[in-house]
Simulated scan of single mutants.
Amino acid sequence: MASHRGRHAYPCRVSYPGRPVLDVLQEFVGTASTRQTPEQRARLLAFCAEQYVAGRSIHELAELTGRTQSAVRRALDQAGVRRRRPGARPMTVAPDQSF
């Protein structure tokens, strides 16, 4: 029986670089409270809806607005935006390409 000398069953681990964390946009700094003004709430709803439809993730929107992902989901629901399925976007292949 061979000894692994403390090695794991899978000796080669791949580390992936971390995704950069986005800074809160200046217009949303200090506005994440239960006492938002109607104008602040309207701006949040409009921003989240616009950016989500343009392709931003809920995670990215949470970072950009200083909210939790749950708060962003509620904002999208309140704005009437239909949410995408969870997970990464499916890869698209051009019709003339094959595997």
Rank of each mutant, 00 (worst) to 15 (best):
S3C: 12
G6H: 01
G6Y: 00
H8P: 12
P11W: 00
P11G: 15
V14D: 07
S15R: 08
S15K: 05
P17S: 10
R19I: 05
P20Q: 03
D23T: 09
V24K: 00
L25N: 10
L25M: 11
Q26G: 15
Q26C: 15
E27N: 06
F28E: 02
F28S: 12
Q36E: 13
P38W: 05
P38M: 08
E39R: 12
R41D: 10
L45V: 11
A46V: 03
F47S: 12
C48A: 14
E50R: 12
Q51V: 03
A54Q: 06
R56Y: 00
R56M: 11
S57K: 06
I58H: 04
H59K: 04
L61K: 01
L61Q: 08
E63L: 15
L64W: 09
T65L: 09
G66D: 01
G66F: 04
R67E: 02
T68R: 14
S70Q: 10
S70L: 13
A71H: 04
A71L: 03
V72T: 02
R74K: 14
D77C: 15
D77S: 15
A79M: 06
G80T: 10
G80D: 04
V81T: 09
R82T: 10
R82Q: 10
R83C: 14
P86H: 07
G87H: 04
P90N: 13
V93E: 05
F99G: 10
